[in-house]
Design a protein around this nucleic acid. Structure first.
Lengths: 331, 331
DNA sequence: TTCTGTTTGGAAACCGGTTTTTAGAAGGCT
DNA sequence: AGCCTTCTAAAAACCGGTTTCCAAACAGAA
C-alpha cells in the first residue's frame, strides 16, 4: 500500500480511504489512486485488514459430517447467505471427535472467524457455554433442545411433521404403522410424539413393538425394517426417521421381495433432493433444510452486527410431500 | 499477550516463544508462563499471527456446488487432510457464476488463504493462470485437461473405467450397450473412448444412436434413457456417465415398467456412497473420489511448503464394483 | 483584508502478534 | 581474577493495513 501511495503521490491513509470508498478524498485524487491500483493489480493484505479492522470476514460452520446430504443442504444455505453478505465460510467436520471439537473451538476463539454456526451439536459439545461466555456470536441449527439463553437457534416443526405423516397414512387406511426413531434429539422425540398423538386421536392403539430406534443412517432403516417384517403382525406402513433411513427400508423391502407401496408404504423425513429420484419416489415430510441454514446464518449476522434478535428461537414449518411410496394398504 | 507477559513478569517475546514451543526459555519461566496462560484461558489473535507470520493457516476449496454427493466426497477428503495438517478449509461454491469466481479469487489473492484447490474448473475459470502467475499455490481435482505447466492435478483412469464397465457388460452377453456421456470434459471423452475401444475389440459395431449426452445430473440420465427406450432396437444395457445419471435411468426404467437388471442392465460411474443403497444396488465404476481430494490436498501442501512435486499430474485407478444392477440380457 | 468554516490529505498511533537485535547474567576456562 | 562462551530474556523493529487527530489550503463572509 505504501508503494501504491508513493506511485500515486499520496499517503497510505489516502489509499486506504479510496479502497474503502470512504469520503474525504477529492475526486481527481481518488481517480488517480484508483488508476494506479488498477495498473498494479494491487490487492490488500487480508490478515492486516482483519487485524486492524477487528473482523476476519469469515464464519465457521460446524457439522458432524460433510458427506451427508442433509448437512449438504444446510451447508448450501449457509454458504449462499454468507456469500451474499460478502463473507467466507470455514467448514469443519467433527465426526463426534473431541480432538476436532477442540480444533475448531481454538479457531473460533482466536478470532479466526467472526462467529460460528453449529449443526446438531452432539454429546461432545460442552463448549457452547464457553463460546457464549466469551461473547462470540453463535447460531444453532436443528438443536437438541438444551440451548443457553440468548443463543440463536433454528429448528423445524417436528411434532407437526410427525403428526401429518401419520395422519396421511391413517387416512389411506393403514392401522399398523411403524415408526423408526433417531438419536435421542429433541427433534426426534417431537416427531414420535406427533406420531403417537395422531394414532391416539384416530383411536388406534400405540404398539411399542412398532417403534424402532437407531441413528439417522440407512443401516438403521435397513435393520429396523427387517425387525419389523419379522413381527407376527408386520406393519403395512413404515414411517422412517429420515430419508436416509427410508432408503434402508427400501432395501429391506426389496430383499424381502415386497413392493412399495403395494405391500408396504414408506414415508421419510427431510425431503432431501434425492428422495424424489428414488424409485418409487419417496413420500416424505419436507423440512426446509436449506432455508434453515440460511436463516441461522442471517440470525448470526444480526448477532455479529450487534442487533437484537426478535426471537432467538425460530421453527420453520414442515410439510408433507406425497409421492409414490405411500398408498392404501393391501386388504 | 502483553497482559499475560505482565502477569507472568516477562515480556511479550517470551510469551510468544512459550506459545510456539520455541527454545530459549528457561524451564521454570516456561512453566510459569504456561500456568498464567492456562489460568487466563488466553488464546492468540489469529489475524495478528497471520499478519506477522505470513500465513493464514487455511486453504480455499472451490467447487461448483456443495450439495452434490460427488463434491461432498471430495470435500470430505480435503477436509480430513487439512484437519490433520492443522489447517482450516474455506469452502466456496461457484455455481458457474462469474461473480462468485471473482469473490473467491479476491479472497485468495488477498492472502485470505494459503492456497486453493479447484474441483472441475469450469468455463468461467479463466483465472487459473493469474493465480499461477502470482505464485499462489493451486491444485486441481478431476480437471478438464488444460492445465498450466506446473500446477498439481489429480484425476482418475477414466479410459480404463469406461473400458472395464463395457467389457463387463459384453462378458454378460450384452451387444446393444448404450452410453450416456457428460459435459465435454477430458474425463468424459476418455470414458467414451474406453467404451468404444471395448466394443471394437469385441467386434461389436459402435452405434451412434446409442450415445446420449448431457450434464452430470439425474435429469440427463432420465431423458437419455427415455430416448434410448424409444429406439427401434433399444439397448439391453445402459452405461451412465455417473451415478446421478444412473438414478435418472432407474427412474425412466421404473416408469416404463421395466426391471433392472432383468430387462435392462445399468452401470454408473463414481461409486458414490448412495449407489450401494439404491434398489437394486448399483453396479458402478469406482473412482476413489475422497482419496483424490486428499491427494490433491497433500500435493497443495507440498507446494505451499516449497517442496518439488515428483509429478504434477497423478491419476488414481478406477475399479469396477459389481452389484445388483447388471446381469445377463434377456434372450 | 481578515476571519471563520470546510475540504483535503498527511503524520502518527494502533491492531497483536513474530522476528531480530541487543543486553545482562551465569558458567567455564586459563 | 579476568576473559570468553553460552543462556536467557528484554527492547525494538516489523507485518500491512485502519483510524484518529491535526495542519494546510481554500472558499466564502464580513
Amino acid at each position: 500500500m505504501a508503494e501504491i501511495a508513493a506511485l500515486a503521490g499520496v499517503s497510505k491513509p489516502t489509499v486506504s480511504k479510496v479502497m474503502n470508498g470512504q469520503p474525504g478524498v477529492a475526486a481527481t485524487t481518488r481517480e488517480r489512486v484508483e488508476r494506479v491500483i488498477a495498473e498494479r493489480g494491487y490487492v490488500r493484505h487480508g490478515a492486516a485488514r482483519a487485524l486492524s479492522a477487528g473482523r476476519s470476514g469469515s464464519v465457521n460452520l460446524v457439522v458432524k459430517e460433510v458427506d451427508n446430504p442433509y448437512h449438504a443442504e444446510i451447508i448450501r444455505g449457509v454458504e449462499e447467505t454468507l456469500e451474499r453478505a460478502g463473507l467466507s465460510m470455514v467448514l469443519t467436520a467433527t465426526h463426534d471427535e473431541e480432538r476436532r471439537h477442540r480444533r475448531w473451538m481454538a479457531r473460533v476463539l482466536e478470532h479466526g472467524t467472526d462467529g460460528a454456526i453449529l449443526v446438531l451439536p452432539d454429546e461432545h459439545f460442552t463448549h457452547l457455554a464457553e463460546l457464549h461466555n466469551r461473547g462470540i456470536p453463535v447460531a444453532l441449527v436443528d438443536d437438541r433442545g438444551e440451548i443457553p439463553v440468548g443463543v440463536a437457534s433454528v429448528g423445524a416443526t417436528n411434532f407437526a411433521g410427525g403428526f401429518a405423516a401419520t395422519e396421511h397414512l391413517l387416512s389411506l387406511g393403514h392401522r399398523r404403522i411403524a415408526i423408526i426413531g433417531g438419536p435421542s434429539f429433541k427433534s426426534t422425540r417431537e416427531r414420535v410424539a406427533g406420531y403417537r398423538t395422531a394414532l391416539q386421536e384416530a383411536g388406534v392403539a400405540v404398539d411399542p413393538r412398532l417403534h424402532q430406534a437407531g441413528g439417522f443412517v440407512a443401516e438403521t432403516g435397513y435393520e429396523a425394517a427387517k425387525n419389523l417384517l419379522r413381527l407376527d403382525e408386520p406393519p403395512t406402513a413404515i414411517f422412517a426417521g429420515n430419508d436416509l433411513q427410508a432408503m434402508g427400508v427400501y432395501r429391506a423391502l426389496y430383499e424381502a421381495g415386497l413392493r412399495t407401496p403395494d405391500d408396504v408404504s414408506v414415508i421419510g423425513f427431510d425431503d432431501l433432493p434425492l428422495s424424489r429420484l428414488l424409485t418409487p419416489a419417496l413420500t416424505t415430510v419436507r423440512q426446509p433444510v436449506r432455508e434453515m441454514g440460511a436463516l441461522a446464518t442471517r440470525m448470526l449476522l444480526q448477532t455479529i452486527a450487534g442487533e437484537k434478535l426478535e426471537s432467538s428461537r425460530v421453527e420453520l414449518a414442515t410439510s408433507l410431500v406425497v409421492r409414490e411410496s405411500s398408498g392404501p394398504p393391501k386388504i
